[in-house]
């Protein structure tokens, strides 16, 4: 699966995008966030407060209970500030 990070999630994780294999026992976006938090201080800082993180699966907004699967494009970013 492809993971994308934007704005301060990109700067905190130190990554714009990455390819990972679907981790074992990860079924939902929430599971994935819990798995990502274990990866180090940058990731735990990025996903510290999920009230200010929005998630998209295959370029559509989703809630944290949305399922994830191999081949998905999953993006994490702060609330948007365009316009």
């Amino acid at each position: 699966m492809k993971l994308l990070y934007f704005a301060w999630l990109r700067t905190r994780t130190g990554l714009g995008e990455e390819e990972i294999a679907l981790p074992q026992d990860v079924r939902t976006v929430r599971d994935l966030v819990d798995w990502l938090r274990q990866r180090g201080p940058g990731f735990s800082a990025a996903f510290e407060n999920m009230k200010v993180v929005r998630a998209a699966v295959n370029q559509s907004y989703v809630q944290l209970d949305h399922p994830v699967s191999e081949g998905d494009e999953i993006a994490f970013f702060p609330p948007v500030t365009g316009g």
Partner: peptide
């Protein structure tokens, strides 16, 4: 413009 500001994935630094 109202919807764009809350839904379109842009971020200002």
């Amino acid at each position: 413009i109202d919807w764009l500001k809350t839904e379109a994935p842009f971020w200002k630094q």
